[in-house]
Write a protein that binds this DNA or RNA. Structure first.
Lengths: 346, 346
DNA sequence: TTGTACGCGTTATCAA
DNA sequence: TTGATAACGCGTACAA
């Protein structure tokens, strides 16, 4: 049992050479003799030496760390995106450190501070729901730490971004409902604080207009965070209306699944009486009955793209284009919640 | 736009005081005058100063980092556990760094190396499926870095552990099936590499024996990783048997849900013809129809307990009990997949 | 109340 | 092929 950790110095003493020789030998520096090198490496292993990356990073002024600020890793979309980030990062020799904001602005600020202090080489962020002040993120720009947003981006800040076309996806989803014969289409909307949910709402409205349907305010349910409960609440309100909607587009899968369950509990059929469509293609969308039609937003690819972007900036900072936006494709995945020969079309 | 990051020295020069004064003022050291302190802090803010924690940690020989080695964060159980870890850690002033092994032994080894290099103050680990050599984890013990296992632990190593009573939970689950009248109970087993899945299998067998039922080998389906596909495969085999099982206990929810879907596809009813029970209480268990009876393994609490344990060891190393194991409670959550007045009992 | 001086573990530069 | 020395940014014992 060692008391304190083994350092380069101790190895040097045992071998009667200088610490620099050890340092070089451990990195297979060509200027060190083959024999010395292998001796050093053997002894280092035997002594249980581990490099102290604090010291090395301090000296080198590079940490190979990419910080990720994200609301919550236990959301499917976000953990998938992180997997994408990690895949690209680790292949390029970077480590990924995750900071959860829990959708709290204060924690996000704290996370940003910690990231600055930890000397991360680059940062990838998906903003917290609460966030509408962006000063805490300026520190990165001011210190030339590359910053890439994804999904929940901030248009007020001039940085690189990775997004999907939420507006277009919402248009696609809504027009799908129209195409299967829905006449009266409702929308369960997310927090209007966030651009992605505003865009989805706008897309929904635009699709209606384009198809000669007048958007009605009472057909929109504004929710705080698209939870199961809010989905059920919205569904009940819609179902009890005189003129009941025959199609519901929800801004996420959680609320959509809740809506399906509520429709069934109400004694109506999905999709025959009410067709339902969600957003994100989470695993649960395959389990609910009927299986949920939804938008696949390719979270993994968003993560990959964000990581590639931030690494490119780290590795050649000259190429500093002011602000570039990558739009990841999205697909409508049609399943039984909108698919049926028996839809009650009038 | 600053070229390089602001340091204590630069602040010192601007204020014509020594760097140590700045250092102390920034930490609200009592020996520094009120006026100086506030001046320093104001200027630091204005100059956009961020402490360099590499340097500070190197000096202090403490990082306040807790490293977590975990197979995959996009598994519900694991991301919940991490949330538990984070909650406790951040309250105690520690940061959590996550290293995914992707269930690969090689990556886990690499993760351990990185964690040693990053000078983490403590480590929490949930082992990869592949892992059956534990040398890479000895480094922590040898360097007095506290190590706590949770869930997928390693009995060969003398460390602190947080687990649930997998054996007891499996007994409970199986006896529940017996109690509702199941006579012929099958089991979808996880990878027998891992103790938790061995224990669940043993618990299943023990419950049968205790109740005078002879465990049959053909009623056990051994799977690689309890995936949807493997669950479906197992279900088909069981359903096509001459003497069809009337109850199936699955070692996770994913396979259980898949079994339910397969039973229905086969034209039989859950639970009337076949009752199904899962393990872990994932969100999807509420969405499948009928809703899945399952074991709640309290992942969040496991994470909390592991974090408390590792922090205690970090903060008073004298109390170094060789090896302590915390067993977190687990609950049987009874839902419709085993609940029905109409079960076909003979 | 503040400054001086040193060291944390490593690496880069320069000289030998 | 190797060694001496300085430096990375910060914290702290000691001195003033």
């Amino acid at each position: 049992m060692k008391k304190s950790k083994v350092t380069i110095k101790e190895i040097a003493e045992k071998l009667n050479v200088s610490p620099s020789t050890i340092s070089r030998a451990l990195q297979n520096h060509p200027s060190i003799g083959k024999k010395t090198t292998s001796e050093v490496q053997k002894l280092a292993k035997k002594m249980g030496y581990y490099p102290n990356s604090l010291a090395a990073n301090l000296r080198r002024n590079k940490t190979n760390l990419i910080g990720v600020i994200i609301p919550r890793i236990d959301r499917h979309f976000q953990s998938l995106a992180i997997s994408g980030i990690e895949e690209v990062a680790s292949k390029a020799g970077y480590y990924v450190v995750i900071f959860q904001s829990n959708n709290s602005y204060e924690r996000e600020k704290e996370n940003a501070r910690m990231l600055m202090a930890s000397q991360a080489d680059g940062v990838i962020a998906c903003l917290a729901m609460e966030t509408n002040n962006y000063d805490h993120l300026n520190a990165f720009k001011n210190n030339n730490v590359p910053l890439v947003f994804f999904d929940r981006v901030c248009y007020e800040l001039e940085t690189h971004k990775v997004v999907i076309d939420d507006f277009g996806a919402a248009v696609k989803a809504t027009e799908h409902l129209i195409s299967i014969g829905c006449k009266r289409i409702a929308h369960v909307a997310g927090n209007q604080h966030m651009a992605i949910f505003r865009d989805r709402l706008r897309g929904y409205q635009e699709a209606l207009r384009k198809n000669g349907i007048l958007p009605e305010d009472e057909l929109i349910a504004y929710t705080e965070d698209l939870s199961r409960e809010e989905g059920a609440l919205a569904a009940r309100r819609f179902l009890n209306m005189q003129a009941r909607p025959d199609g519901i587009f929800c801004s996420n899968d959680t609320s959509a699944i809740s809506v399906i369950q509520e429709v069934k509990r109400f004694g109506l059929k999905v999709p025959d009486d009410v067709a339902v469509i969600g957003f994100s293609n989470t695993p649960s969308s395959l389990i609910v009955e009927p299986a949920l039609t939804t938008i696949d937003d390719h979270a993994f690819e968003m993560g990959q793209a964000a990581a590639r972007m931030v690494i490119r900036q780290i590795e050649d900072p000259q190429q500093d284009i002011a602000s570039e936006t990558i739009v990841i494709r999205n697909d409508l995945v049609v399943r039984d919640s909108t698919l049926s020969g028996e839809r009650n079309v009038d």
